[in-house]
């Protein structure tokens, strides 16, 4: 039985210009101990998916459809009180540039202890402190740094502290949204290794959201490619990256700059992302697609199965 099953999730935002259909018909499932990556450009809806599951969407957002089944309950429908009990204890989230979320006037160790005690009021201070020491050890921060303030930490250390906080209550699932974007490449490499190690050791389910395909390829078993609010391709990482099917996936891969391989600037594709207030009747990638035909603009593409695990949503594949 999967840890999390999301079925036909649709989320939008009310704005002055209209209702932005930010996530449309997204379905996926995640098993315990496995990792799933969401890749796509800014505005594709990947962050909205994470926030919807955590019920942390802003006031102008609306979940118009869908279910998110976790432990027999629909996360999208349970009460705020029930969600508060699940949040952090069963599902934790690491936000982008989360290091800025650390309280600057409180010692880092105390902040994590606070998180532990909030979800386990009967725990003793000594136990909680020991737990934080263990967590710091897990993420590679020396225990002595517990008494420091966030400004004494480097960017990488702060992010690791945030990861420790996410792990504090032994969650079953972690949603990490661009956890390494604000970090330098050497620190990023350390953080990704820490996340992979922890995920395996603690058998935690991981949803990893990023615009950087290399980072996602490094961490996740399964990849979901997002474009303009819709999932356009999904499969095991080997399948999606060695045999990409969707024209957008191919373009995304071609845009990735490597240190090896041919040295030539990849050809960019033209245009900007689709209008999500009045999305096209047909495929949302149609305008920028190099292989589209007239039918693509008025018929929604169906899912085509490539293998048991790999499928693509495109009428030209």
């Amino acid at each position: 039985m999967p840890l999390l099953t999301v079925d036909n999730l649709c989320v939008g935002y009310h704005t002055r210009k209209g209702f932005i259909k930010s996530v449309e018909g997204v379905s996926f499932s995640l098993n315990k101990g496995k990792s799933l990556g969401f890749v796509g450009e800014s505005g594709c809806g990947k962050t909205t998916i994470g926030m919807a599951l955590m019920r942390l969407l802003p006031d102008n957002a609306l979940i118009t459809q869908g279910r998110g089944m976790f432990d027999g309950r629909n996360l999208l429908e349970i009460s705020k009180e029930e969600m508060r009990k699940i949040r952090w204890k069963r599902i934790a989230m690491i936000f982008q540039a989360a290091m800025n979320a650390l309280n600057p006037v409180q010692r880092v160790g105390e902040q994590i202890i606070e998180a532990i005690v909030a979800h386990d009021p009967d725990i003793s201070m000594a136990s909680a402190t020991r737990q934080v020491e263990k967590l710091f050890d897990l993420v590679g921060i020396t225990a002595g740094r517990m008494r420091d303030f966030p400004h004494n930490y480097s960017g990488g250390m702060k992010q690791r502290a945030v990861i420790a906080m996410a792990l504090a209550c032994n969650p079953d699932l972690i949603i990490a949204d661009e956890p390494t974007t604000a970090l330098d490449v050497i620190v990023q490499s350390q953080i990704l290794n820490a996340i992979k190690k922890l995920q395996k050791e603690l058998d935690i389910g991981l949803i990893f959201i990023s615009h950087d395909i290399a980072v996602v390829a490094d961490v996740c078993d399964t990849i979901n490619i997002m474009y303009a609010g819709q999932m356009v391709e999904t499969g095991r990482r080997e399948e999606v990256f060695t045999a990409p099917m969707h024209p957008y996936t191919k373009n995304l891969l071609a845009s990735y700059l490597t240190l090896d391989g041919k040295k030539a600037l990849p050809m960019p594709y033209s245009g900007d992302t689709a209008n999500l207030i009045y999305p096209p009747q047909g495929c949302r990638f149609c305008d920028r697609c190099p292989v589209s035909n007239p039918a693509c603009s008025h018929t929604q593409p169906e899912w085509i199965k490539i293998s048991a695990t790999h499928k693509v949503r495109c009428s030209q594949c």
Partner: peptide, 25 residues
């Protein structure tokens, strides 16, 4: 540029190259 990437001499440059996510696909 190609020399720096293919034949980095300084340990820091080497560390930068090593840390760059290897897209193996």
């Amino acid at each position: 540029s190609e020399n720096i990437i293919q034949n980095p001499r300084h340990p820091y440059t080497q560390a930068l190259i090593k840390a760059h996510p290897k897209f193996r696909y």
